[in-house]
Amino acid sequence: MLLLLYVLIFILTILNVLQYRSRKKIKQTLHEMSEKLADIMKNETSEKVLIQTNQHAIQLLLIQINRLLDYNQKVIADYARTKDSLRKMISNMSHDLKTPLTVILGYVEKLKMDEQITEEEKGIVRLRLHEKVLNLITLLNQFFDLVKIESEDYLIPLSKICLNEICRKNVLEFYDLLHAKGLQVEINIPDQHLYILGNEDALNRIFDNLISNSIRYGSDGGVFGLTLREGEGTITVEIWDKGKGIAEIHQDRVFERLYTLDDARNPQFQGSGLGLSISKRLIESMKGSIHLNSKPFEKTSFTCIFKQITY
C-alpha cells in the first residue's frame, strides 16, 4: 500500500514537472510571438510570424495572426493606391480645369480690353468662348456623373436588352464621321438576337465613348471594327482598331479616374480621362467586365463581356 502511494506521488510529481515545462514553453512561445508582432508593426514590414511549435492551439493562433497580417498589408496597399490615385486625380483635375478657364479668361479680356476688334472678330471670339464654356461644363458633368456612379447607393434599372440593335444603332450614329475619316469599317453582328440584362442608356453611353475613342486615337490605322459574339453563357462586344495603340505601361491604368495618356492632353486629342472610368463602372453595374488588349498598328481592342440571358 505504501509502495503504491510512493508511485502515485512520483507520477504526480512527473506530471507537475511536465505541465510546468509545457506552460513555460507556451509562455516563451507567446512571448516570441508578441516580440515578433511588435517588430513587424514598428518597422511596417510584410513579414509573417513564423515560430515552430507542436501546440495545436498556438498553431491555429499563428494561422489567424498571419491571415490578419496579410489583410493588414492589403489594406495598407489599397490605401496607398487610393491616396496616389486621389493625388493624381486632383492634379489632373486642376490641369483640366485650369487650361480651359485660362483660355476663357483670355477671350473675355480680349472682348473687354481690345478696342480695335471688329464685330466679325467679336463674333468669332464669342463662338470660341461659347465652345470652351460648353467643354468645361461637359467635363464637370462627367466628373459629377462618375462620383454619382461610384456611390454605394447608385442603382440603374435593368431590363432585357437586345445587344444586336444597340450595337447597330451606335455604329450608325458614327457613320458620317467614319466616312469622313476614310476608315474601312468591319462590322460583325450576327442575325440571331443576343440578350443581356442591362440598361439601354448606360449601354449607349459606353459604346458611344468606346467608338469615339477608337476613332479619335486609332484612325491612323485606317480600320475600325465592332464584333458581337456569343460565348458560353456570355455575350462579348469587341470594339477595335489598328491604330498606334496604347503602350503596355498604360494599359492597366486607362480605367483610372482622370488618367490620360500624354497625347490626350495635346489639343489635337482632347480627352478628359473620365470616359473609360465611367464606362467601366457602368459595365460593372450590369454585372459585366471590360478588358483592354493592345498591340500597336496590329490591333487595339476594348472587350466588354456581359452575362447572357435566354429567357
Rank of each mutant, 00 (worst) to 15 (best):
R253S: 15
R216Y: 02
I215W: 02
I305L: 09
K280T: 14
G221M: 05
D241L: 02
H250L: 12
L228H: 00
M286A: 11
L261N: 10
P296L: 12
G218K: 09
S214M: 06
D262P: 13
C304N: 14
H291P: 00
T260M: 15
I246Y: 09
V237M: 10
L292K: 04
G288F: 04
I290D: 06
S289P: 02
N266Y: 15
I239Y: 12
D241F: 07
L228R: 01
N266L: 14
W240V: 04
F224P: 01
T234D: 02
F255V: 11
D263F: 15
G222I: 02
A264Y: 12
V223G: 01
M286G: 07
K287H: 14
I305W: 07
G225A: 06
A247H: 13
D208G: 13
S219N: 03
T260R: 11
S212G: 04
R281C: 12
T303I: 14
T260W: 09
Y217C: 08
G225M: 01
R229V: 00
S301Y: 04
Y217H: 14
P267V: 09
L228E: 00
G245S: 07
E232N: 06
N266C: 15
G243W: 08
I239W: 15
E248V: 15
G275E: 05
R216Q: 04
W240F: 13
I239V: 13
G273P: 09
E284F: 09
I246R: 03
L282T: 11
F207R: 10
L274V: 04
E298S: 10
R253E: 15
N213F: 02
I246L: 06
R265E: 13
G271S: 14
F207C: 01
L228V: 02
I211T: 07
F297M: 00
I249R: 12
D252C: 01
N293R: 06
A247S: 13
P296G: 00
C304V: 15
L228G: 00
G243Q: 07
V237A: 08
E238S: 08
C304Y: 11
Q268H: 14
S289L: 08
L276C: 02
K280G: 04
G225S: 11
K299G: 02
I215D: 06
Q268R: 08
M286H: 12
Y217A: 00
H250Q: 08
D262L: 13
G231M: 01
T303R: 11
D220G: 04
L228N: 13
P267Y: 12
I235P: 03
G245I: 07
Q268C: 05
E284W: 07
F269K: 13
L210R: 09
G245M: 03
Q270L: 06
A264D: 15
W240L: 03
D220P: 05
F297R: 03
H250W: 14
D262S: 14
D208K: 12
C304E: 11
G273F: 02
S279F: 07
L274E: 07
Q268S: 03
R265F: 14
G273N: 09
